[in-house]
Design a protein around this nucleic acid. Structure first.
Lengths: 145, 145
DNA sequence: ATTGTTGCAAACTATTTGCAAGGCG
DNA sequence: CGCCTTGCAAATAGTTTGCAACAAT
């Protein structure tokens, strides 16, 4: 969730060129809450950037992930999703509508500390995913699942 | 981590036939702690079951996951890993040697409860992955990462 | 001017599927 | 014996790569 100037700066600092495509990809990701995968991003960008290619989206996300501008989510689907919020927050996915949401303001420190102590690992990251039925889907189809 | 008789029973109860391949796949998975992906399982089984095909491993894991005999792990690799222990325990992966280990006896209830309250979801499952450097790799290459 | 980037198409890889032969119930 | 399963090969889908034209520095 950075300003374009900051994205520009971070790209330059890491030896990458600043291109309209890269900024557009970042803006599109930062502007949505849907945690899109590469194809969703490509479809979002298509109208404004008709020559944008899926390969560019992938290459861009690869670079962004490498320099800490985005994080990659594995919710168990066949494709990766992306999040412009790089803080290590848990995510939750509705098993009915497939929406992926953030969970902020939840204290996972005790769990992390316990994991570190139990395993002796030097922890560098984590991914926490919850699955269930969202409030909306509970109303629509209360019985399924 | 069930006995073969139990696996047999569960397959039958769910209307699936009991075949040597299915039992072999289950045994191979239950016997290892490496959290293998389909290809690793295939390679493990190959010597004893030379006609075993990768497709059979995939189909079998699909059935097993469906009837709760295995769980599928997404550690962020390009392939899924499998675990014969279907309890919802966290996993930890070494970013150096890529080993995936279980974390047992860790209390994730508070986090789950908090997630449920924050989101209003009816939770049905979760996946918790930690990443870092294992004790062994810390000794071998203390500086990297 | 140099070097990195784009965008197309082709390559690649994990997984799934169609189908004929075979095996379980 | 009927139907499900196997195992091969082909298909599929997400992602990556090669490369020539192009653009950022």
């Amino acid at each position: 969730m950075l300003e374009i100037e900051n994205v520009t700066q971070i790209l330059r600092d890491n030896g990458f060129k600043v291109t309209p495509q890269r900024l557009a990809v970042y803006e599109a990701l930062a502007a949505t809450e849907m945690h899109p995968n590469a194809e969703m991003l490509y479809n979002i960008l298509q109208p404004q950037y008709p020559t944008m290619s899926l390969a560019t989206v992938y290459k861009t996300m690869d670079i962004f992930a490498g320099i800490g501008l985005v994080q990659i989510l594995n919710t168990g689907e066949d494709s990766f999703r992306y999040d412009a919020n790089t803080s290590s927050h848990p995510h939750i996915k509705c098993i009915c509508c497939n929406k992926v949401a953030d969970i902020f303001d939840i204290d996972d420190e005790p769990l992390i500390k316990a994991a570190q102590e139990k395993t002796g690992f030097q922890l560098t990251g984590r991914q926490i995913y919850f699955y269930g039925k969202c409030p909306r889907c509970q109303k629509i189809s209360p019985d399924t699942h």
